[in-house]
Structures are given as structure tokens and as C-alpha cells.
Nucleic acid binder design. Structure first.
Lengths: 347, 347
DNA sequence: TTGTACGCGTTATCAT
DNA sequence: ATGATAACGCGTACAA
């Protein structure tokens, strides 16, 4: 009743296991007819080569691991879609790991991946500021390629796919300024994380360019928890009275919407909001949300392509590639000056 | 430079491989000190037991496969989050497969999973009406447990976790009727799929109860493509002039919003909309969207629990469990009678 | 408590 | 073109 193996199949056909094995590998010499005979019988007996035995022999798992902070974020979703396409085209399988921004989880996952479970790793790093990355260096020693996407560690030399966060952040801030904002808050989750830093820098430089003062208190450090963010943002909006806000992460824009509604702050009259976000229905929000939208799907696909290049060449030599894709700034109602009517649903 | 194996580690310690092996397995008798010594050295040499060799020995992969139609749907997202929690608690790894509603993909994935890659499978079936499910029967022969969630095949006897679709659909339709609708459209993607059928039946029965005629033309069969749906729905709204719509799937509600905007149909005055949806920001839409919200996270968690029960008992005997969780009907602006002001952001 | 020896299911090498 | 055999790395009877 249990799984049939190659020996039993061979016996049933009066052939040797080697011949049977060859029938499943494409390159080897084998008589067409016997191959047919074997495959037919295999189907009949519901035989398939044991994956683990093959991997043990070949030292290849045909599996890649994807480590992301979370799924409840349209950016990661779309990115995974993108890399899934590439991986499945190559016949690779995908293991998914969620860190929930916990550094310890990330270490645990990576350590679990030293043992051959995956041929390569694609990762968007955990949010917690981490000093110690030796667990990543060890990967290299084992010849397991690693590719970063979106969120990276600057001190690790690995191929990476990111978007032009600095420029986007700069442009978004400038857009707020040009829409008349003078007290612009920057809503961020992990200041220390590289991605937060880039976005922050763009924000600061745009202020500078337009001779607006940078005020530390207007940088609002949030958490991953909706309740907490609600409190933090309520407090901040009440006391600081910003007239513009740039959210470094989608969920902070969402939280802001709830807060504004409850506090009677109207968007965009009292407060203009723009956010890094891959939310597809941003046009349908009330008011429609201006966004900086990263090419998430494409980033995922490119990251996968990069990884497969490493896997296929087998070597991790050569210059480390760094692909930067451009985000789009889409202006909608949440940063508009006049009242709606037109362009409400700009897509 | 390559991965170190148990032999080398044993040699480095002047021990036998069996002793080393025991250090990594918890139950076996082994001297505490030697165990410590082994683990220390292992860490030092960056040794970890080879996953594939272990699996080959133990015939266990500590991996489960999750097959879903897509990720771009909040329901599946949250469900995956739920089952990830359970799986990672058990130390299991998760393989993800996306069918994009293609029957052939589903078959290919399932066939790929016969070979030991996963200890069990959790699946929400592909949308295409499939007649032939022998590929699933073959799984049973190999003792690979299967659990359905949300979307099931009725002719396959496997544990399942669903929500009370019929009742929800009935209640939603009734809600529309009570809000004054008389020409209620039912927007669906795959009429033939079991889940579509249940939701359709609830719709029909509610009409019946309230003495409204069931009209075939008001059942609008859509696709998975936004462009196509836009056309289909535009046409339907223009010619059929429904005053209410129940969307069996989130994306059809979204498409409807776009269509209504472009056609100048105002929600809820001209058309009231309610949708099966796990969209967390439904309250933020313009207007906020009334939803039937399934307990997605919980469904995922329960499905995983069910699967692990099968995996752990090893037997697939006993009655097939069928867990039904209740969805919530949340009334918001899109089905309201009066003008907004109050409750706009009901969460 | 530790070591020896075999087998898990496959594929690569070598021989026929 | 096909068959015999060893080896991949590990875990477990069994022996010591």
C-alpha cells in the first residue's frame, strides 16, 4: 500500500533499476520502446521517483526559499507572485517563511536552510535592527546563494533588487510641499532599517531643498500593531498638527485614515497623505490615496532571475549585481488641493 | 568548503557517527557531556544534519504543501497566515503552489507531491470545473493526507474546513431585499464550482422567501480578468439595471466600483453592493463596502490542525471531519438607505 | 553509554 | 542498450 519504489517497478518489468532510472532522466541512452514501456507501467503503478533520494544523490533540491516579513502587505504579495512565475517556469518549488519582523526568527530560518532544503534563498530582511549577520556569512560557506529584495542589509555582499526609494521619497515630499504643506510628518516603522533610512533621507533632503526646517518630532516612529499605531498617530496628529504626511509603509497610511476619521481631520483639506503602497485599490479609498507604487511583481521576478543565475552558474564570483527598479508616484485625492469631482478614481 | 557531513564531524570528535547522530535526536541515550561536546563542535564547524538524508531514512519531510488559486486575494492571504502559525509551531515547513485556477496546474502539482516532498497537503481547489479527480485518489494510496479548505470537491472524501456560505449568502441577499432592492444581481466567477453553487443557492432561496422572481439573466458569470470583468459588468449594469448586487468574490465588488464610477451609477443610491470579502480596509472604501467576511485566519489554522491530526495519527481512518466556521455579515455604506454621516467607518 | 553495520531510494560509473 | 554496484548522509537495530 505504501509508496512503490524503483526496485519494485524494475522487478515488475523484468528490468534493472538503472534502466528504469534512465527512463526518467532525459539525456541517457535508452531504447524508445523500453522507455515507453517503463513510463506506462509507472503510471499504472503510480510510481514516481522519490524526491529525497534523488536530492541526496544529486545534491540538488530544486527548491528555493523565500523569507519575507509578512504576507499582509500587498508589496510582498505581488513580489511573491512575480518570483513564483519565474520559479515555476524553471520547475522549482517554493518554501515560504514569515519572520514577522523578528530577528530571531530570521536567524532560525536561515540556520534551518543550511542543510540542503533549498538551493537558494530570496529574502527581504526582518525589520529589527540587527548588528550581527554571521549567520548569513555561513550561508556563503555552504554555497547557498542569497538574494535580497526591497529590504537589505548593507553590510552583506549579496545580489539585490530594490527600488529607487530615495528619489521616490524625495519626489513625494516635494509633491506635498508643492501642494502647500509646510509641516510634513514622516511616518515610519523601523527607522534603523536600511529602507527606512533611504526613504527618510529623501524626505529630509526635499525639505532642505525647499527651505523647510527638519523637525525631529515630525518623524513618527510606529510599530507593526494597528492598535498601537492608532494611539501613536492620534497623539501625534493632535499635538503636532502636521498638514502633510508621508507614510513609509502602507499600513501607516491606513491607520492614518482611521485616525483622521475619528479625530475629524479631513483629508486632504486638513492633512494631505501620500504613502509607499502597492495597494491595488488605492483609487477606491475615501479619499483615493496618493501612492508611491513599487514595481513589486517585477522586483520579485528579477530577484528570482538573479537567484537562478547564481544557482545555475554555481559560482558566487563576479561582481554583485544590484538592480534598481523605478517606483511610480501616483497623485490622487489624498494630496489634492481642489475638491474632488474630477480624477477621483485615477488608476 | 562544501557542506560538512556527519562522518567528518564524528572524526573530528573521535566518535562514531551513531553517537553524533544521537546528539541531534532527543530521545536516544547519550551522555550529557558528550552531547554538549558534539553540539558545540557542530556549531563550530557549522554542521547541520542533511535534511534529505534524514527524510530518506525517516520517510518524513516535515513539510506541508499548500495549494491555492492565487495570492492576490485577502482571503487566501489570511488563511495562509493562519496555517503558517500552526505549521511553524510544529516546526514544519511550507511549500506554496499557485494554480491560478488552472485545473492542469492543480493536477501537475498534486502529481509532483506523490514523491515524499510533503507529508500532507492543504488545498483550496482550482476554479475550473473538473470532472476527473483520480489524481486525488492516488494520493490516498500513498498515505498522503489531504485537507480541503474553502473550495472543495464534493466527490472527494477528505477533511475540510469551510464557512457557512449558504447561510451567509441567504442573509446577504435578504439584507439587500430589506434595504429595498428588487432586482438583485448575483456576480459570480465559476458557477460550477462548489462554493459558487452554495452561494448561489442561498441567493436563490432568499429571493424565493421574499417572493422575488429568480431571473437567470441576473446571474452574471465573470472571469478572473479585470478588463474582462469590467466589460461584462458594464454591459450588465447598463442593460439589466439591477438595484442590488451580491458579489460572490471580492474582486467582482472591486470591479463593480470602477464600473459604477465610470457609468455614473452611484452606490448605494442607484445600486447597493455587498460582497464576500476579507478585505481589511473595506471600511475605507468610497463608499465603505458591506461584506460577508469569512474567518480566514481561523480557517487556515483549523485546516492545518486537521492536517496535522491526520499526519500524526498516520491513519486516514475514522469519520471525515467537516468543520464549518461562521462568516460575519457587516453592513456598511454600500448597502445603506440613508445618506452617510454616521457609521461611515464601521469596522 | 557508545560503536558497527545495514538500508532508506536513487543515480553515476563501469562493465557487459 | 542494459545490468551490477557503489555511494549520497543519515538513523537505528544490534552488539559490545
Amino acid at each position: 500500500m505504501d509508496a512503490i519504489n524503483i526496485k519494485q517497478l524494475a522487478k515488475a518489468l523484468n528490468l534493472s533499476t538503472s534502466t528504469v532510472s534512465r527512463a526518467f532522466r532525459n539525456n541517457s541512452d535508452i531504447n524508445k520502446e523500453t522507455k515507453e514501456r517503463i513510463l506506462t507501467k509507472a503510471r499504472e503503478l503510480n510510481y514516481q521517483p522519490n524526491h529525497y533520494a534523488s536530492n541526496l544523490r544529486e545534491k540538488k533540491s530544486h527548491t528555493i526559499a523565500v523569507i519575507v516579513p509578512e504576507l499582509a502587505n500587498n508589496f510582498f504579495l505581488q513580489a511573491i507572485n512575480g518570483l513564483e512565475r519565474v520559479a515555476s517556469e524553471k520547475g522549482y518549488h517554493i518554501l515560504i517563511y514569515l519572520t514577522y519582523d523578528k530577528y530571531e526568527k530570521e536567524i532560525a530560518f536561515i540556520n534551518d536552510l543550511h542543510n540542503g532544503r533549498a538551493d537558494g534563498i530570496i529574502m527581504s530582511v526582518s525589520g529589527e535592527s540587527a548588528k550581527e549577520h554571521s549567520y548569513l556569512h555561513r550561508l556563503k560557506n555552504k554555497n547557498i546563494p542569497l538574494v535580497f529584495f526591497d529590504r537589505i542589509y548593507e553590510d552583506i555582499d549579496a545580489p539585490r533588487v530594490t527600488s529607487n526609494d530615495y528619489e521616490s521619497s524625495f519626489a513625494a515630499t516635494e509633491h506635498l510641499i508643492e501642494s502647500g504643506c509646510e509641516r510634513i510628518a514622516f511616518l515610519v516603522i523601523h527607522k534603523s532599517l536600511s529602507i527606512g533610512k533611504m526613504r527618510m533621507q529623501g524626505y529630509q533632503d526635499a525639505l532642505l531643498k525647499h527651505h523647510l526646517p527638519y523637525q525631529d518630532e515630525l518623524v513618527i516612529d510606529c510599530s507593526n500593531n494597528l492598535e498601537e499605531n492608532y494611539k501613536i498617530l492620534s497623539q501625534a496628529f493632535k499635538t503636532l498638527r502636521p498638514d502633510g504626511a508621508l507614510a513609509a509603509v502602507e499600513r501607516l497610511a491606513i491607520a492614518s485614515y482611521y485616525v483622521c476619521h475619528d479625530l475629524g481631520i479631513s483629508i486632504p483639506q486638513d492633512l494631505k497623505i501620500i504613502s509607499f503602497s502597492s495597494l491595488e485599490i488605492a483609487p477606491l479609498l475615501n479619499p483615493s490615496l496618493s501612492t508611491i507604487t513599487q514595481p513589486a511583481y517585477e522586483m520579485g521576478a528579477q530577484a528570482a532571475a538573479l537567484l537562478f543565475r547564481s544557482i545555475e552558474t554555481g559560482s558566487m564570483e563576479g561582481p554583485t549585481e544590484h538592480i534598481i527598479l523605478k517606483s511610480k508616484l501616483i497623485k490622487r485625492q489624498s494630496t489634492a488641493n481642489e475638491s474632488p469631482v474630477i480624477n477621483l478614481f485615477q488608476r
